[in-house]
Design a protein around this nucleic acid. Structure first.
Length: 783
DNA sequence: GAGTTTGAAACT
DNA sequence: CAGTTTCAAACTC
């Protein structure tokens, strides 16, 4: 709050500053108070064209304030003036604030104009001796000017969906990213500055760490850029961030003057990749210090650097926004290695799209959305392989959703690919909602900045805006980061079900039978699959559809989720998501004879659900609920009781089981690339364990949805009844409630339920586009 | 990584 | 519907 006042005051003062008399009066006047102080600082910074390094930080702080003020207010004239003055003075520090402003502006449309102006002035800074800077300056100015506005406008325009809510999300994402960049810059200047920033933006504090890394990476990028001379061309170049980091700063000092376009995208990516923030930061700081010492203009250096970054950043933002999805990928290009996943995913998608478009008339016929979905889904799969482990039985979208929810974590593993998948998935789910995809991409990028460990750090703001969705995104980002956490999870998952995520390995079924997990799950086989003579590809969409129809004709529920979770509805009411989906049951029931329903051979066990009356298993010991036992209570205590009663064996089991479930949850859930909403919710709540866990298998590319829809439609209660009706068990009661609904909406409910469980998330969910879209699609389809 | 086990899916 | 075969995942070594 203070800042606004200061800013307001500051602006007029800045104008007056010119007159030495005014300054003198101010100094003399006891009234100066706070305002005067701020002004005084600004003056100092301004007055001191090249203030000693010592001042740099204070200036920065003041600048920060100014920038904050600017953000809040339309700094418009005031700041530009300041910046211009600063630029004249040659203080880069001021430029930095401008840059910050610009960023902020990018985040906040109104400011954009100001930022652009200020930046332009900054770039002009005479202090920078390098002619290159001058050259760059125009660029930066262009970018800046354009970017802020363009960012806000174009990005929004491109991204903005008809639904304001959705649009908001993307914006927030952008802002977030922008903020990060700003912070980076600030942090780069001085740790104190960072704090100040953090204060201004509490959320960013967490980021700051990553920001440092990003800064470092940025620095490296800059260096690279410089070397290449063509910032853009060189941007993408593959450079190991780590290596660059250490060396980059040094080189940066040299290049400082050369203000090349900083590519934020790269920086972002790098940030994600950077695991050790602290180390980087320290290195960066040390590097900065070195620069200052060595640099012609110590202070200027930081400022110049910032300026560069600023200019670059906006440009990137603009691109991203303008390009939206594609552009985003393009950004990542720069990052290529780090973001390979995205690129690859994109590539895959593209390929798939091409294939689908060219290959199958059906696809085109079927519906744009199918084709698109398929494509997306397909693209997803690659990731899914790693992450989303869907239970074989679960079908298509639902499965995908479920998987996504659970697997948010899993996605991490495959970092890049996963990232894309995540993005693609939501889109696929809601093809209509391109925004969701974008937002996800954004989130993922943002996530990159944030460290895996603490998503919360993202900041309240982010959470508020992105919140749940981010959780997944963050996770994804984590994956990107390659940080240890991801690895850990991978290990966990691998240990648990990483394999489950594997693709099919069909040799004789051509992936056109339910033997094929991919086919059964309603997804196309992807590269990861080691299947032979696979026809379960978009190219053979016709065949796939025909086969599906045949199978469905025989068994309408063939592609329906094998595991039905009545819990979906129940949990909301009652409760603890943590409990295994007691209500959940296998559609048909297992027929295990030797595995005692204690191994994945048992579909019930694999699905994380207890056996039911429908099961014909022998010697059932399903930890999730035995056939004979009282109704499967779910993993909760009830089961324990049963188990305990039966055999001491299980005593150990109970604990182990719980642990197992947890593992499953982690394993299965982790991967899922959820639609933002899901991942989000699930990710945060431990509830993940729910039935979904069973659905582990990844949502790969989904087969043509029509079938899927059919399932829901067809699935009529009639058939379900077996399942639902048959069981008198409490569970059945739930099931009977509305089999169709469950199947059709389960994912929604689940999501909704999960959110409901977590009060916090609900708000987010509403905002989430993916959800509605799904429902819409489904409903429309059904109709 | 190869081989075995297992149970679902497919077939008769 | 029951029995058999086929199949691929899960599991073991």
């Amino acid at each position: 709050m203070d800042t606004p006042d200061r800013t307001q005051i500051a602006t007029p003062i800045s104008k007056f500053e010119d007159s030495p008399v005014f300054n003198y009066i101010n100094s003399l006047s006891p009234i100066k108070p706070v305002k005067s102080i701020n002004i005084a600082q600004t003056f100092n910074s301004l007055s001191f064209s090249s203030p000693p390094s010592v001042f740099s930080s204070p200036h920065l702080s003041s600048q920060r304030e100014s920038r904050f003020l600017k953000r809040q207010f339309f700094s418009g004239s005031s700041k530009p003036d300041l910046s211009s003055e600063d630029g004249l003075t040659g203080n880069t520090s001021e430029a930095v604030p401008d840059a910050v402003q610009v960023l902020g502006s990018s985040a906040e449309p109104p400011e954009s104009s100001d930022g652009g102006c200020s930046i332009g002035e900054v770039t002009v800074d005479p202090a920078n001796e390098n002619s290159e800077l001058a050259l760059e300056l125009p660029r930066t100015l262009k970018y800046d000017c354009g970017s802020p506005e363009c960012n806000a406008d174009s990005s929004e325009g491109n991204k903005t969906d008809p639904t304001p809510v959705v649009s908001d999300l993307p914006e927030t994402f952008f802002q977030f990213g922008e903020n990060v960049s700003v912070e980076r810059r600030l942090s780069f200047q001085s740790g104190a500055d960072m704090h100040g920033i953090s204060q201004v933006k509490p959320n960013q504090e967490v980021r700051t760490e990553s920001d440092w890394e990003s800064l470092i990476s940025d620095a490296s990028d800059l260096l690279i850029m410089d070397s290449s001379s063509n910032a853009e061309a060189s941007r993408i170049e593959d450079q190991d961030i780590v290596d660059l980091r250490s060396s980059s700063f040094k080189s940066l000092t040299l290049h400082q003057d050369n203000g090349h376009d900083m590519h934020i995208s790269e920086s972002l990516v790098q940030i994600g990749s950077c695991e050790n923030h602290e180390v980087d930061n320290s290195a960066a700081q040390s590097a900065v210090g070195e620069h200052k010492e060595t640099d012609h203009t110590p202070d200027v250096f930081s400022s110049a650097f910032q300026n560069k970054t600023q200019a670059d950043f906006p440009t990137e933002i603009v691109d991203n926004k303008a390009g939206s999805h594609i552009s985003f990928g393009g950004k990542q290009r720069g990052i290529r290695r780090r973001c390979l996943v995205f690129d690859t995913a994109g590539g895959r998608k593209r390929k798939l799209e091409e294939d689908s478009t060219s290959s199958s008339s059906v696809s085109s016929q079927s519906d744009g959305k199918y084709t698109s979905d398929d494509k997306q889904l397909v693209s997803i799969r690659p990731c899914s392989s790693t992450s989303p482990c869907m239970i074989p039985g679960i079908g298509l979208h639902l499965n995908a959703l479920a998987a996504t929810t659970r697997d948010t974590r899993v996605v991490k593993h495959e970092t890049l690919a996963s990232g894309k998948e995540l993005i693609s998935i939501p889109s696929s789910l809601s093809s209509l909602h391109s925004l969701s995809v974008e937002t996800k991409s954004l989130t993922s990028s943002l996530a990159l900045s944030s460290t895996y460990t603490d998503i919360s750090p993202v900041g309240n703001d982010l959470q508020d805006v992105l919140d749940a969705p981010h959780a997944s995104a963050f996770k994804v980002g984590e994956d990107f980061n390659e940080s240890s956490p991801k690895k850990k999870r991978r290990k966990l998952e691998q240990g648990g079900e990483s394999e489950a995520c594997k693709r099919c390995n069909c040799k004789k079924s051509k992936c056109l039978k339910l033997y094929c997990e991919c086919f059964a799950a309603g997804v196309y086989c992807v590269e990861p699959c080691s299947c032979q003579e696979c026809f379960n590809k978009p190219v053979h969409e016709d065949t796939v559809l025909a086969t599906r129809k045949q199978i469905e004709s025989r068994n309408p529920l063939a592609f329906a989720p094998k595991v039905i979770r009545s819990s979906d509805s129940v949990p909301e009411i009652g409760e603890e998501s943590n409990k295994t989906p007691a209500s959940a049951r296998h559609k048909r029931g297992c027929n295990c004879k030797k595995s005692n329903c204690l191994k994945k051979y048992c579909e019930c066990y694999q699905g994380g659900v207890g056996c039911s009356i429908n099961c014909r298993c022998e010697g059932c010991k399903n930890t999730y609920g035995r056939k004979d036992g009282p109704s499967p209570m779910g993993f909760g205590e009830a089961e324990q009781d049963e188990e305990e009663t039966e055999a001491g064996e299980k005593n150990g089991l109970d604990v182990s089981l719980r642990n197992k479930q947890v593992r499953r949850d982690e394993e299965q859930c982790p991967d899922n690339v959820l639609p933002m909403t899901f991942s989000f919710q699930i990710g945060r709540s431990s509830s993940m364990q729910l039935p979904f866990s069973s659905f582990g298998k990844p949502p790969r590319s989904s087969l043509p949805q029509p079938n899927f829809e059919k399932h829901f439609q067809i699935i009529p209660e009639d058939e379900t009844p077996e399942f639902l009706r048959g069981n008198l068990s409490p569970i059945t009661g739930i099931k009977t409630a509305s089999p169709n609904r469950k199947r059709v909406s389960p994912p929604h409910r689940d999501f909704a339920s999960s959110p409901s469980r977590r009060n916090n998330r609900r708000l987010v969910l509403q905002s989430i586009p993916s959800f509605p879209s799904l429902t819409q699609q489904e409903t429309s389809e059904l109709q």
